[in-house]
Simulated assay, not measured.
Amino acid sequence: MNYVYIAISLDGFIARPDGGLDWLENLDDPEDDYGFSDFIDKIDALVMGRKTFESVLKFDEWPFTKPVFVLSTTIQTVPNKLRGKVEVLNGHPKKIVEELNSKEFNNLYIDGGQTIQRFLKEDLIHEMIITTASVILGEGIPLFNGISGDIKFKCERVEVLNPYLVKHYYERDK
C-alpha cells in the first residue's frame, strides 16, 4: 500500500512558491503530533522527492527512523550522517514500488508534491491523509498539479484537530 500524509492550505497549496512552510506555524499544539507517529508506525519506508529531502535536511535533527528513499537524478550521495538511513533512487514509479516491495518495503509513505503527482498519475496511491489548514496562500506549490483525468477517492472519515486543522482520510475508489 502506498500512502500520502500531507498538509495543504485552503486553496490547495502544500508550500509557498519558495517551498516555505511557515504558514503551518502556530496552527497546532507542538505537544501533539495529531496521529503522525501512529501513521509512521504502519509504514515500512518513505519515498520522497529531492526538494522535500532538501527541505528536511534543514531540520535540526533527522526526523525519521524508517528507511528513506529519495527520488532524484541529480543527487549522487547523501550526507555521511545519513548513510544507512537514506538511499537515492531514480526511475519510473512502478519500477520503484516493485523494487521496494521486493525488499519487503510494502507500506510506503509517498511525500513531496511532484513525487505524489507522479505516483497519482500512475495510480499508485491507495490512501491519502490530507490535513487542511485554514490559511489561504494565494499562490504556492499545488498538491494536485498536472493530473489529467479523474482519480476517484472516497472520504472514509473527517477529524477536526483544532479550529485551524481538519484531517481528511481518503481511500482509492476504483
Rank of each mutant, 00 (worst) to 15 (best):
I141A: 06
S134D: 13
V4H: 03
P142V: 01
D41E: 13
E25R: 12
G91Y: 00
I130L: 10
W23R: 03
F53C: 10
I116F: 00
G140M: 01
V97G: 03
A133C: 10
D28N: 14
L10R: 08
H92D: 15
F36A: 05
V47T: 02
R118N: 13
S148R: 11
K95M: 04
I40V: 15
D29E: 00
I130W: 02
T115I: 05
L124F: 10
I130S: 11
Y34W: 14
D28S: 14
G12E: 03
K66F: 07
K81T: 14
E31F: 11
E31W: 08
I40Q: 10
P30L: 07
G149S: 11
Y3P: 01
K81Q: 15
P30G: 05
K85P: 14
G84Y: 11
D28P: 13
G35W: 02
G138V: 05
G149W: 00
Y3E: 09
L82V: 02
E87S: 12
E61M: 05
D44H: 03
E98W: 10
E54P: 06
N2Y: 05
I96G: 06
E139Y: 00
E127C: 08
K174I: 00
E122I: 08
N106F: 07
E159V: 12
H168F: 15
Q114V: 09
I75H: 13
E31M: 08
V56D: 08
N162C: 02
G12N: 07
V135S: 00
S37I: 11
L120E: 07
G19L: 02
T52R: 05
V47R: 12
A45F: 11
N162R: 00
N80Q: 11
I43V: 14
E54T: 05
I14G: 00
I96N: 01
L57F: 08
F53E: 01
S148T: 12
G12Y: 09
I141N: 01
L120K: 02
Y169T: 11
N162M: 12
T77G: 03
L24A: 13
A45R: 12
N26W: 08
F13H: 06
F105H: 00
D22A: 11
G12T: 03
G140L: 00
I147M: 05
Y34K: 10
P30Q: 04
T131M: 06
D18F: 07
C155W: 09
T73P: 11
L137G: 08
V4C: 03
R118I: 01
E127N: 13
D28T: 14
V4G: 06
D60P: 01
L161G: 07
D38Y: 05
P30S: 09
Y109G: 13
L24F: 09
P63F: 13
P79N: 00
